[in-house]
Amino acid sequence: DEIHIHFNGVTIEFRGLTEEAKKALEEAIKRGASEEELKELARRLIK
């Protein structure tokens, strides 16, 4: 299970995320999180 985020022309790929983690990332994107914020969020979620 993986998710691809297209962000300002950059694709960020995450693997092994739970549904909750995906929802958290989607919410962050909707509120306009920066690419760095998304990566940091993903790091926290994957652990």
Rank of each mutant, 00 (worst) to 15 (best):
D1Y: 14
D1W: 14
E2Q: 12
I3N: 05
I3C: 05
I3W: 15
H4I: 13
H4E: 04
H4Q: 05
I5H: 03
I5P: 01
I5F: 13
H6G: 03
H6I: 13
H6L: 06
H6Y: 04
F7A: 03
F7C: 08
F7V: 13
N8W: 07
G9M: 01
G9A: 01
G9N: 05
V10Q: 10
V10T: 10
T11Q: 06
T11K: 09
T11W: 12
T11D: 06
T11L: 12
I12Y: 07
I12P: 01
I12W: 06
E13T: 15
E13C: 14
E13V: 15
E13S: 15
E13N: 05
F14K: 01
F14C: 05
R15Q: 11
R15V: 10
G16M: 07
G16C: 12
G16L: 07
L17I: 08
L17Y: 03
L17K: 01
T18N: 10
E19W: 14
E19F: 14
E20D: 09
A21L: 05
A21G: 13
A21I: 14
A21P: 00
K22C: 04
K22Y: 11
K23T: 11
K23Y: 14
K23A: 12
K23C: 05
K23H: 11
A24E: 14
A24Y: 12
L25K: 00
L25Q: 00
L25A: 01
L25Y: 02
L25H: 00
L25T: 00
L25P: 00
L25R: 00
L25N: 00
E26V: 12
E26Y: 15
E26P: 00
E27Q: 11
E27I: 09
E27M: 14
E27W: 15
E27S: 11
A28Q: 03
A28L: 10
A28E: 04
A28T: 03
A28G: 02
A28M: 10
I29K: 04
I29W: 15
I29V: 08
K30R: 11
K30V: 12
K30C: 05
K30M: 12
K30D: 08
R31M: 11
G32R: 02
A33D: 08
A33N: 02
A33W: 09
S34G: 08
S34L: 05
S34I: 03
S34R: 04
E35T: 09
E35I: 15
E35S: 09
E35L: 15
E35K: 06
E36V: 07
E36N: 08
E36G: 07
L38G: 00
L38P: 00
L38M: 09
L38T: 01
L38Y: 01
L38D: 00
K39I: 15
E40V: 10
E40S: 11
E40P: 00
E40A: 13
L41G: 00
L41M: 08
L41A: 01
A42D: 00
A42E: 01
A42R: 02
A42P: 00
A42Y: 15
A42T: 03
A42N: 01
A42W: 15
R43V: 07
R43F: 14
R43I: 09
R44Q: 09
R44D: 04
R44S: 07
L45A: 02
L45R: 00
L45W: 13
I46K: 06
I46S: 09
I46T: 07
K47G: 15
